[in-house]
Amino acid sequence: MQNYTVFVPRLVPKKEPFAPGHRACIGCGEALAVRLACKAFPPNTIVANATGCMEVISSQYPMTAWRVPWIHVLFENTAAIASGIEAALKAMARKGLRPDDGTKVVAMGGDGGTSDIGLQALSGALERGHDLLYICFDNEAYMNTGIQRSSATPFGASTTTSPSGIKSIGQKTWKKNMAAIAAAHDIPYVATASHSYPHDLMAKVAKGIAVPGPAYIHILSVCPTGWRSAPDLSIRLGRLAVETGVFPLYEIEDGEYKMSLELPKLRPVEDYLNLQGRFRHLSEDTIKEIQERVVAEYERIKEKTG
């Protein structure tokens, strides 16, 4: 990963396609991830956005935070609508109704809209090979409706539908590996990103849009409300998720794995878990179990990079 910490303003586009004044919670990592991703869009981009936090906070009628063409779609058909837009643009160019100006299509969804409800439509769009970028903003539960568990919720996390207690440790299943599911479609570009590594995120979004054919980017976005963490720790938590190996950053280009950040040594997962209220009930044994699983997963991805 390139280190761009010296003089940031010259290296980042000044444009703000995601306007301020949106109603995101204080310290929202997902709003930051959307803002950074929008900066990397080429001039002509159409966004199809699934129901979820990003739709609710950005488009409270009669106001909108978007400065790009934007359509709100249902949970289940984000990828289908985005494929429709892409196919329509192609058909209109072919019939001479509209010049082929290289307009790009981006679909956005939360983890619920991607890994639970919209998975079938996403799989279809990836399989048909539409030229679009699908971005999943993963905050690891249905935060917008009140922190219900999704299939992207990590093991041991306490949510309102997987509460911790005497007989429960919270979420009983492991996080669904969406990047691997997307990669299994043999699409040209799959990546994971974090808003705590903004230049890496923007480079990946730009690359995902530029590649011909479908691309998928999975962005871990910290949610202080649902993760029960302090709002000012959002960036630090994103960084810790990467440094502990809980959420490794990598790219898969035409089946070739590539680590975005080479970590000589993983930090213990306690550093990441202890900052979040949703994990505070975990016992030593459970943390040990999580640690073993995280290391094993990380090694498995590292092996694939060769």
């Binding site: 306007a19 301020p20 009628y61 106001m63 909108t64 978007w66 790009v68």
Partner: peptide
């Protein structure tokens, strides 16, 4: 169709 005609109007909203 309840469309938005002006982009980025939340900038007027004082958060």
């Amino acid at each position: 169709g309840a469309i938005f005609t002006v982009p980025g109007t939340t900038a007027d909203y004082q958060t």
